[in-house]
Every structure is written in C-alpha cells, then in structure tokens.
Amino acid sequence: MMNMISLFRETRAVRDFTDEPVPRHIIMNILDDAVWAPNHRFREPWRFIYAEGDGKQKLAASIDWKQHPRLVNTIIQAPLCLIVTAKMNNDEHIASEDFAAVCCLIQNIQLLSWVHGLGMTWNLGDYRGWTEFMKLAGIQENERIAGILSIGFFAPVPEKAALIELYEKVEVW
C-alpha cells in the first residue's frame, strides 16, 4: 500500500518530458502551497520567473551551448522553465539562511509536482557572468539564482532510483 514514506522514496529528478503543455493554474497552486516553506523571520526571500514558449527559447539561446549542453537541452525540452531566486545579503549568515529557505521551497515544489504527475529537474550552478541570461530573466542586483527548474509531464516514468544506505552514515550518542 502507498503511504507518505513510499511517496517520498519514489520522488526523483526527471529529465525527459512530453510536449504536453503544463496548465498555469496547476503551477500557481503548487507555488502557493510551496511558499509555506520555513523561512527565518518571515523574510520570504524568494521570487519566481516563469518562462514558456518564446520567452523560454530566448533564455535557452542566451546560454553557451558548448559549455552547458545538458542545461540547454533540458530547458528546450521541458515545457516550463521556472527560475527561483534567493535574496543576497552582505551578512553571510543571513544570506546562508535565506538560501536554505529557498532550497526548502524548491523541495516543496519538487514534492508537490510529483504528486501532480509532473516531473522536475533542479539545475544549480555558477551563473556569474551570464549577463544576457540575467537581463532576459530580469534578475535583480540583490538576487541570486537558487534554481533553474525544468518542469513538465513525464513519460515514461523515469528509472527507479538506487536505494540510499543511510544507517552507516548515522553515529548515535
């Protein structure tokens, strides 16, 4: 029988998507749930850029394909590209807390998408120097990209994930 634990165990990254468009209202519902992520002092340090169709193709075209073939292919192939930003801060501790909060939010998106039959890949890299991309996406000076998410329906169901052995990584006091 399916339970919460097995649902989490089954969740996985998806890189192959069907052409079927993703209804915007489903994504908006997912995001309005996902923002219930924990965040310090209620700073809600996130913002979203939703790109599909031409807007998405332009984003993909601004990336150096030779350097980042996998990312470019994923953006082109997935019907939706959702960029999630985190607020930057001169205080390293606050910046790190805010980045963590946005990562929790992205995990919520991953889990909520999965139960809606949507797959997601979370791309995260060093995006310094991506001037054209940042300009197209409208990323502001005080923001950094916490994830470029590729979202879409998947078929077939992606390969079963390898089981993670955790017990040997837990020390008990």
């Binding site: 634990i5 097995s6 989490f8 165990r9 969740t11 996985r12 990254a13 995990q107 991953q110 889990l111 994930a161 390898a162 089981l163 993670i164 955790l166 017990y167 990584k169 837990v170 020390e171 008990v172 006091w173």
Partner: peptide, 24 residues
C-alpha cells in the same frame, strides 16, 4: 532514521552518494 532515509531518497537519487553524515 527510517524517515531520514526516505527524505534522503527523495533528493539524492542520481548518483547515490550522500554528501553528508549525521550524529543522532
């Protein structure tokens, strides 16, 4: 620990290597 294992499984599923350890 069971729930921690399932949580790890929901994120680390491509290469299997876990970049962290725990003290319980």
């Amino acid at each position: 620990i069971d729930r921690l294992q399932a949580a790890a499984q929901s994120v680390f599923n491509e290469k299997g290597k876990l970049p962290c350890r725990f003290v319980y």
